[in-house]
Computed example of a mutant assay.
Amino acid sequence: MNLGFLPPELVALLGAGFWHAAIVFLRVSAMVAVLPAMGELYVPTRVKLAVAAAFTFVVAPALPAFPEPDGVMEYARFAVTEAIIGLALGIGVRIFVLTLQTAGTMAAQSTSLSQVLGGIGAEPMPALGAVLMISGVALAAMMGLHVRVAELMIRSYQMFPAGQFPAAAGLTEWGVFRVSQSFSLAFTLAAPFVVTAVIYNLTLGVINRAMPQLMVAMVGAPVITFFGLFILMVGSPMILDVWMRSLMTFFADPGGGMP
């Protein structure tokens, strides 16, 4: 494009702004690709691209200008490092959705609800996992997920400077910490269902010992299904509240667990 009709200073400014936005877009687009709500499999690629561009327009002005890459190799280095960092941060947020799915799987296996509506989402999961995941994503969007994500993107440049490879040991330790926290949180969220299932099975065992001729499995199956649905109805607000607090804690301190 011929920009000879523009002043040289404006042309230089536009060029610097383009490279600055392009470098920011590399990290932002990689992060958006795996974010909850915005990076789901059923979201069209054009929508993801538009969301990444919108985040770029928000994040880029809040950062000091990056110098124009000196050659193709330097831009390739930016592309690799920014993609790795963006994916790592996006997966850190995505893990919280997997936490809800894991908690739903634990609850469904405990209450004999693992086969009902098993294919409701893009990934196979039990009904309880699908309900908790959709509810959690909707709650996060209502609580300003896009604002928290933009803040995380801006703060990420203090944790991981642009163009620098993150330390492999530190990133690995951070990932292990996030996964361990995810399973711990998932078990905490599914604890009401697991405790109910333990009490239910102990009760059936006592009844079976007292009346061996009674088919306790036929009698008890509707009971555990009812209690599973009842706990989901009564306890889901508290479950989602605990999950949302953990998600906001991560946004407040995304570097937790990193040496």
Rank of each mutant, 00 (worst) to 15 (best):
A37T: 12
T105C: 01
Y75A: 15
F96H: 13
T45F: 11
R77L: 04
P67K: 07
I91E: 02
G71W: 10
A50P: 00
P44N: 11
T105K: 05
M73C: 01
V97I: 14
M73L: 15
K48D: 11
E68L: 15
R94Y: 00
F96K: 02
F96Q: 08
L100T: 00
R77N: 07
V93E: 05
I91S: 00
A37H: 11
V43D: 10
T81V: 02
V51Q: 10
P36D: 11
T56Y: 02
L98C: 01
G71H: 09
Y42H: 13
V47M: 08
T105S: 14
A79Q: 09
T99W: 01
E82P: 13
I84E: 05
F78N: 04
F78E: 13
P69V: 08
A53Y: 02
T105G: 15
T99A: 15
A79M: 12
P69E: 04
A83C: 04
P64R: 13
A76Y: 09
V59H: 03
A50V: 06
L63M: 08
I84Y: 09
V93R: 05
L63W: 02
A54H: 09
R46T: 15
P61Y: 07
V93N: 05
M38G: 00
A76F: 12
P36N: 10
L100A: 09
Q101A: 13
M73S: 14
I85S: 03
G104R: 05
F55C: 03
T81K: 01
V47I: 14
A62V: 07
P44M: 09
I95C: 02
L63D: 03
P36Y: 06
A65W: 09
M38N: 04
A88C: 07
